[in-house]
């Protein structure tokens, strides 16, 4: 008998459990994509709201995670488009988590010098991600933050696998360049 995990279509029936299980993942992706905690939480709520409304249309062709990521990717795209048009709101942009990595490293387990070096590298990746194009950023985050493979990324973004590879290659190259420049 197929279980809820094996059959995403069954899994989605217990939507409260779906929210509790997938909320952190969606929020994590959106937080890294928009780099604004308030907007990320809002978009996460919208994502699950849309998913709830369209739950009956989900056939289980892809995993539930991929399906939710698809919704989240679309929300990010729409949000970016809206932000570009509202140029006057850039000055009033929400808090950018500049202290993203200030508290995550456990104290006492690494030396202060090592901690500072890691902080610099993570901040460099964070800043470099913000400067990527929308597609490069999405593909990069889905691959290295959400651990999706090329096929899943292709399903979530609607891009071909070759396009995903190209965007991923460019994103990695740009981030490595930024990290290297920051280290130098």
């Amino acid at each position: 008998m197929p279980t809820a995990v094996d059959n995403p279509a069954m899994e989605i029936q217990d939507f409260d459990r779906v929210v509790q299980q997938y909320w952190p993942r969606i929020l994590r992706f959106l937080l890294a994509a928009v780099q604004d905690s308030d907007v990320a939480e809002t978009l996460t709520q919208d994502c699950f709201l849309r998913a709830y409304r369209s739950r009956h249309g989900f056939r289980g062709d892809s995993s539930l995670n991929t399906w939710l990521m698809t919704i989240a990717v679309n929300l990010v795209r729409d949000h970016s488009r809206s932000r570009r048009l509202q140029f006057w709101r850039k000055a009033q942009r929400g808090s950018v988590d500049s202290t993203l990595i200030a508290e995550w490293l456990p104290d006492g387990k690494i030396s202060p010098e090592k901690r500072a070096l890691i902080n610099e590298q993570v901040q460099a990746v964070w800043d470099a991600t913000a400067n990527l194009s929308e597609r490069q950023k999405t593909v990069f985050l889905l691959r290295f933050v959400e651990d999706l493979d090329i096929l899943e990324i292709s399903e979530a973004t609607g891009l071909s696998e070759s396009a995903v590879s190209v965007h991923l290659f460019r994103a990695v190259r740009a981030i490595r360049r930024r990290v290297r420049n920051n280290h130098d």
Binding site: L100, E103, V122, V125, W126, V145
Partner: peptide
């Protein structure tokens, strides 16, 4: 570095 970045975002989340 990528792993640290992922951990940082996860912690914030």
């Amino acid at each position: 570095t990528l792993e640290y970045f992922k951990t940082a975002v996860s912690t914030r989340t």
